[in-house]
Structure formats: structure tokens, C-alpha cells
Design a protein around this nucleic acid. Structure first.
Lengths: 138, 138
DNA sequence: ATAATATTGAAAATCATTTTCATATTCACA
DNA sequence: TGTGAATATGAAAATGATTTTCAATATTAT
């Protein structure tokens, strides 16, 4: 039977990657995820498989990829089809993800002003988090 | 305070790069700029120098670097200290730059809501440009 | 000038990611 | 349940953008 309600044809590797990502709250590189799996021991998939799994998960909408400008892609679990943005602290490198997209309504404005049909966007915000700015002024 | 005496200690290579970028209206990679200079002939700087020049120009605030997720940095001339964002057509790969930052006022909102001091942000918008969507519906 | 300093470029190194290819696993279906 | 086709895997090699090295040049201050 080929019932495809939600096409979740996940490979073994992808399932493990998904599982590992469940335990991470911040953005992680492919290599982060790989070494996490390695630490957890049991038959960890190789790095190549992790990359392939991440690709698959991204196109299935379960994971989002973010590129911050340092030449390394970072990945994060999302609710299927959703996305979100981050506040990234330049000092402690920690990232907080925002619970809602801050520029949802921009799409229609852009459509009417430029005739440009928005399909996705990339928004990341850099600065200093509360903790770090308190440290500085102390 | 002396405001306008900008520290323009540009190397010969950087000057050439700057010049070449003046003639480009879209985002260009280091290699684009390099081959443009090569085409223009006269004693073009090597690729290494182009990279170094771009670094310098970025830290001097004359050029902005954008990373779109394909692992290649793209560069663009800006008015010193300013920045802007792009509408990038997934179909024809052309990019239009927006004349003003669409999320200027977000900073204060984020500051009050998260205690996070914004210093910079990354915003790129992907979709289909007017020309390309007309082509499709034709 | 002359010595000290900074810039250049070719080639080598780096490093994340992708590809290759041979082997192992899963799947369709008779 | 077996059998062959299709898919998944991983180690090693390839890729490709960027960086580093290092020796040769050019620039600058003295």
C-alpha cells in the first residue's frame, strides 16, 4: 500500500539524526550532530549519512538550515512547515530562537510594491544578549 | 569630534577592487570581481589580493558581504556605514536591492522584549520576481 | 638612500561539503 | 519466503571557496 498522508519515508540514519536533534535546543552543525551521535554510542551513522539525512529532513520540512556567514550550515528542528529566526549573541555565541516570525506581514507589502512573490526569507539578528551586556557594565 | 576624516588607507589592490565594484549593480563573488578585473586587463590583482581587499573594505564599512546559503560570499558596494537587503529571484537569480531597511524599528522592540542589544542583522528575501512570474503565467 | 614595514601572488593548506563506488540493507511482489 | 531491483550506507577521494605561507616587491619613515 502506498498511502502517503505525510511522506515520512525516513531512512534509519535520518531517524537517528532526528532523535539526536530532539535533545538540542540550539543551532548545531552537521559535525556537532555527528559527534553527538558518536558519543551516544550505539551504531552511529557516519558523517556522510548525517549530511544526507539533514538534506532529506530539510526538504521534508522537519528541519531548517541556517547559514550565518561563517561558512558552516547550522540545523535545527522545527515544527513541520514552520520557521523561525534567532537572536545570536556575538559575545557568548549563544542563540535564542524567537517564538514568532517578526516579519510575517512584509510579504504583501513587498508584493504590492515590487511585484515580487515572496517564498521564503532569511533573518538573523546579531548583538549582545542580556547576560553578556550585564557582565560588561559590571 | 571629527566625523568625516575617514581612515581610507587603501592598498593598491583594494582601490582596484573598489573601482571594479563601482560598475556592478548586483551581488558579486570574489571570483566574479577577480575575473572582471582580469578582463579589464591592466595589471589585475591576483585572487588572493581580491580576497584580502574585500576583507579590508568590509571592515572599513565600504562594502557589505552577504551569505545566501550556497557557500559563496557575495559582496556589494554600500554607502559607508549603511546596509540594505535584497529580493532574490529563485528563478532568474537576479537580485534587487531594497532602498531602505525594512526592519529598522525592530531593534527597540527586541531590546525591550528580550534585553538583547541588536548590533546588526541579516535579512534576505527569496521568491519570484515580477518578470519571472509573468513568464510563468503566460 | 637605506632600513623597516606593508603588500603582493603563486602555490600549498584548510575545511565543510559532495561525490564515488563498492557493499549492505530494504522492498516489491511472485 | 526467496529473489532481484532499488535504495541506503560509509570510507575514501574529490571539490571548491577561502586562508595561509613565504619569498619577492613595493612603500614609508628616518
Amino acid at each position: 500500500m502506498q498511502a502517503n498522508k505525510l511522506d515520512l519515508r525516513l531512512t534509519k540514519g535520518a531517524k537517528k539524526v532526528l532523535e539526536a536533534m530532539g535533545g538540542i535546543r540550539t543551532l548545531a552543525t552537521a559535525q556537532d550532530i555527528h559527534s553527538l551521535l558518536r558519543t551516544d554510542g550505539d551504531e552511529a551513522p557516519g558523517l556522510t549519512t548525517v549530511y544526507r539525512a539533514l538534506d532529506a529532513l530539510v526538504s521534508q520540512g522537519l528541519v531548517q538550515a541556517v547559514e550565518l556567514g561563517d561558512g558552516e550550515k547550522r540545523y535545527e528542528l522545527i515544527k513541520p512547515g514552520e520557521h523561525h529566526h534567532h537572536l545570536i549573541c556575538s559575545s557568548c555565541k549563544d542563540s535564542v530562537h524567537l517564538d514568532q516570525c517578526l516579519i510575517k506581514d512584509l510579504d504583501t507589502l513587498i508584493k504590492s510594491k515590487y511585484g515580487f512573490q515572496v517564498s521564503s526569507h532569511l533573518l538573523e539578528i546579531f548583538g549582545t544578549c542580556k547576560k553578556c551586556s550585564e557582565k560588561k557594565t559590571r
